[in-house]
């Protein structure tokens, strides 16, 4: 759901270790990278690495039909062009959903119906970028010494509250990290000084800093990213002065990492 706010179609790359998704929004300002590891599933089998091209808006709608207690089974046969979702095959209400792929990683030789040709036109948007930062984001407990200048860890609910509140007041926010303080402050029009009504930094904030950073971001994207907050109790903000912000949510089965390009000209 939190991905479908940013990107409408994306490839779920399935292999025997995990399912990964990586996609940029149309404006190329934000990128979302998701990984769900095989151990995170009750059972998982992937005989051949394949991309499942899915319209995330439709997938979100179909998943909304699931109840929390449902067990959802995702299936895609080797040569199929549908993703099959089944909720709780045991329960009286058997609900198979068949889901047309946006894109199926068939080799170029097989004849593509026109629909696929349309989708293949979309492909360049989904080509996986080599995120030069990806090796720099060990979202584990180990602090990435030479990777980011700072990392701020805070309760995800607090981050959601802060960006939501600030988004009522303005479009951009400056995030400034120094040794002891994280300033997340709304930027007023150039004429007036920067806003002093910072959000009081909540408890449970851990600041790791190698170098002072200060960047400005669009709040619209941060609010979108914060929709992933329900997946993890805490969120990590990793920043360096000349790279995109990384908003990382770790959860047992994997992670959601959101990258956001800063505004120009601080």
């Amino acid at each position: 759901k939190s991905c479908s706010i940013l990107v409408t179609d994306a490839n779920f790359e399935c292999n025997e270790e995990n399912i990964m998704l990586q996609a940029m929004d149309n404006s190329h300002i934000a990128l979302v990278s998701v990984e769900i590891g095989a151990p995170g599933f009750t059972s998982y089998r992937c005989d051949r690495t394949m991309p499942l091209g899915v319209d995330l808006t439709s997938l979100t709608k179909v998943l909304r039909c699931a109840k929390d207690e449902n067990i959802c089974t995702l299936k895609a046969a080797d040569e199929a062009d549908v993703l099959n979702l089944v909720y709780d095959a045991k329960s009286a209400f058997f609900s198979p959903f068949f889901f047309a792929f946006m894109w199926h990683g068939r080799d170029a030789s097989s004849p593509f119906p026109p629909f696929f040709l349309l989708c293949s036109a979309l492909l360049p948007l989904f080509i996986h970028l080599n995120i030069s930062l990806s090796s720099q984001t060990p979202i584990t407990s180990s602090w990435p010494e030479t990777k980011y200048d700072t990392r701020v860890t805070l309760p995800s609910a607090e981050f959601t509250r802060i960006v939501r509140d600030l988004s009522q007041l303005g479009e951009h926010v400056r995030i400034e990290v120094s040794k002891e303080v994280v300033r997340i402050s709304k930027l007023k029009a150039k004429s007036s000084a920067e806003d002093e009504d910072n959000d009081s930094i909540p408890t449970g904030v851990v600041i790791e800093m190698n170098q002072h950073v200060s960047l400005t971001f669009s709040l619209k994207y941060l609010v979108n990213f914060s929709k992933s907050g329900s997946l993890s109790g805490e969120v990590q903000l990793l920043m360096s002065n000349d790279v995109p912000l990384l908003v990382a949510y770790d959860f047992t089965q994997g992670y959601i990492r959101c990258y956001l390009a800063p505004k120009i000209g601080d």
């Binding site: 080599n130 930062l133 120009i264």
Partner: peptide
């Protein structure tokens, strides 16, 4: 918009 970087500026695409 004008005063916003794009990610392509930072990420190397293949």
């Amino acid at each position: 918009n004008s005063n916003q970087f794009q990610l392509d500026h930072f990420f190397s695409s293949p």
